[in-house]
Nucleic acid binder design. Structure first.
Length: 559
DNA sequence: AGTATCGTTGGGGCC
DNA sequence: GGGCCCCAACGATAC
């Protein structure tokens, strides 16, 4: 089923159900729900399925709540407002529609497994009650169903193959401007609304983290940026103003040991975008700082959380970036490494995810290599809790747990270490940890990247293993990143900061960090462990080849 | 059909 | 410090 963006707008009394796309600009579901409506109620449903720290970590939940507050402000500026309901969507939405005699409901199409089940249940309940339902594509540049139609059965498994589909699709739709005035909402009476939500949940409005049962976050915790459309667009435009930087952007040469510097949300200073930090640290206002200071400027855009929640439209990103490229007269980097290339990776994973059964599992997933991963709770806990004894890995895991964000290559390093590089633990376990802790966790991208890194799909050069010692050293010789996240290593000489177990005992003592006492000894011998991993994957690949050969013979015999 | 080439992001040694 | 090659060798694709 494909829903073209040109489909008729919903009429009468409408309800716009926000999930992602937490924005008023370029929001097809919002446009369809408001264009011909006599009255419209924007709604977000806090679903108990998501509202638990084991599924959505505090950092992402806070970013979501901030984004909802901003969305409410945007709607209020247009004569409307956001109603936040608590409960299961298939229960609370039909109840709300009945109470307010809603004619139709619009929402943004979502390919995630839970969303598909949820949306089908909501649609069933609403349609039985005579309420029309409209799903519009909006989270991706293109309608994934339209792309799948062009794939003739199987989506491409290579990035280059994906571009053949992109060529067939043409340019993505131009963004839709935010409307200046929205139809009036009908949940305006607080008493009436409270009566509605009573019996469904015990709260109304946008709650705080604590309301939802989360522990409050400390000053140095969380993504260093406020959630929401306003801040997302502001950061996007700060980036777009750096035309030279955009033209030169090459993802593989960005630096995974860069970090946000000293930015807290509760402090006096407002968190800044990477581009403001860069400007503030160089006299001439460009990003050409070097040495120690350069490590305190994230080398990528850090827009991913805003993309995950749809605070920023991918089509706005695409078209405004295209305009900058035009100004650069073709003198700019190209996919896959360019900035546009990054946006296209996102699109690629969405297409493959939408067209692959069991995309988020190893078993029953046709594109995923079957590998006998270990399920070792103890090793996994060491990885997850930053206790591997490898400072670079533990520092990155600390940043992940504390801030909910990691540079892409740091994600590579820890994912490789957990799976095919050292511990040989199932990628689904690592996927779950990222899915919980990352502020930008996006189902299609997260699963795709874990399969990539574990050599389960897309990428198969398993003998190329990231070293938990050498890799970060290339970027950050003195280990400043490691010292920041693991203060126990603050005084370790640079020579040993990536492998403190090699330091003579008197050096360890002098640094105040005795391995095995103050900081864990390495849980594996990297050299031996990685060799074993390579052998084990080679064996699994060979078994796959044999199985395919047998299957091929059978096919031939039956012809 | 068989072969060459390529693939966003490896490490280590050498010059 | 950057460029080059080798390590041992993957799958998908183009020809």
């Amino acid at each position: 089923m494909s829903v073209a963006s040109t489909s008729a707008a919903a009429k009468g009394r409408t309800l716009v159900w926000f999930r992602k796309a937490l924005r008023v600009h370029d929001n097809p579901a919002l446009s369809r729900g408001t264009l011909h409506a006599t009255a419209c109620q924007p709604v977000f449903v806090l679903d108990p399925w998501f509202c638990q720290p084991s599924r959505v970590g505090a950092n992402r939940m806070r970013f979501l709540l901030q984004s909802l507050r901003d969305l409410d402000a945007q709607l209020r500026a247009r004569g409307s407002s956001l109603l936040v309901l608590h409960g299961e969507p298939r229960v609370v939405l039909p109840r709300a529609c009945k109470k307010w005699r809603v004619d139709s409901v619009t929402w943004e199409h979502d390919i995630e497994p839970y969303a598909k089940i949820r949306d089908a249940a909501v649609r069933g309940a609403l349609e039985r009650a005579g309420v029309e339902c409209h799903a519009a594509s909006g989270h991706t540049l293109y309608d994934v169903d339209e792309m799948l139609e062009k794939c003739k059965g199987a989506p491409p498994t290579t990035y280059q193959g994906f571009f053949k589909i992109v060529d067939k699709m043409g340019a993505p739709n131009a963004p839709i401007d935010a409307m200046e005035k929205m139809p009036g909402s009908f949940a305006s009476s607080d008493e009436e609304t409270k009566a509605l939500v009573q019996g469904v949940a015990d709260a109304y409005g946008i709650p705080t983290l604590e309301d939802l049962g989360y522990e409050p976050l400390g000053d140095d915790e969380g993504f260093p940026g406020v959630g929401g459309e306003t801040e997302g667009l502001r950061r996007l435009r700060l980036m777009l103003a750096r035309k030279e930087w955009i033209g030169q952007f090459e993802k593989p040469s960005t630096n995974p040991t860069t970090r946000f510097h000293g930015l807290s949300q509760s402090g006096k200073t407002k968190p800044k975008s990477p581009f403001e930090i860069a400007a503030g640290r160089s006299k001439d206002g460009d990003a050409s700082t070097s040495g120690a200071e350069a490590l305190m400027i994230p080398s990528t855009t850090a827009l991913s959380p805003y993309m995950k929640f749809g605070c920023v439209s991918p089509r706005v990103f695409y078209h405004e970036l295209t305009a900058v490229y035009k100004e650069l007269e073709g003198k700019h980097s190209k996919p896959p490494t360019s900035l546009m290339g990054q946006l296209m990776w996102r699109e690629f994973y969405y297409l493959v995810a939408a067209g692959t059964k069991n995309f988020d599992k190893m078993e029953g997933n046709a594109i995923c290599r079957q590998i006998p991963w270990k399920k070792d709770r103890e090793l996994f806990a060491a990885w997850e809790n930053a206790q591997t004894g490898f400072p670079w890995i533990d520092a990155a895991m600390t940043q992940l747990r504390r801030e909910g964000w990691l540079h892409h290559l740091a994600r590579h390093a820890v994912a490789c270490f957990l799976t095919r590089g050292d511990l040989f633990i199932h990628w689904e376990w690592g996927r779950d940890a990222f899915d919980r802790d990352l502020v930008d966790a996006d189902w299609a991208l997260n699963n795709g990247n874990w399969m990539w890194l574990s050599c389960s799909a897309f990428f198969y050069q398993y003998f190329r293993v990231y070293s938990p010692i050498a890799f970060a050293k290339k970027y950050d010789k003195d280990g400043q990143y490691v010292r920041h996240y693991l203060p126990v290593l603050k005084n370790m000489p640079s020579k040993y900061v990536y492998e403190p177990w090699l330091a003579p005992l008197d050096v360890q003592k002098k640094a105040g960090c005795v391995v095995g006492v103050d900081y864990p000894a390495p849980i594996v011998d990297h050299s031996a462990a990685s060799k074993r991993c390579v052998d084990d994957i080679a064996t699994a690949y060979a078994a796959h080849k044999d199985a395919n050969a047998v299957a091929g013979k059978k096919r031939k015999a039956s012809d």
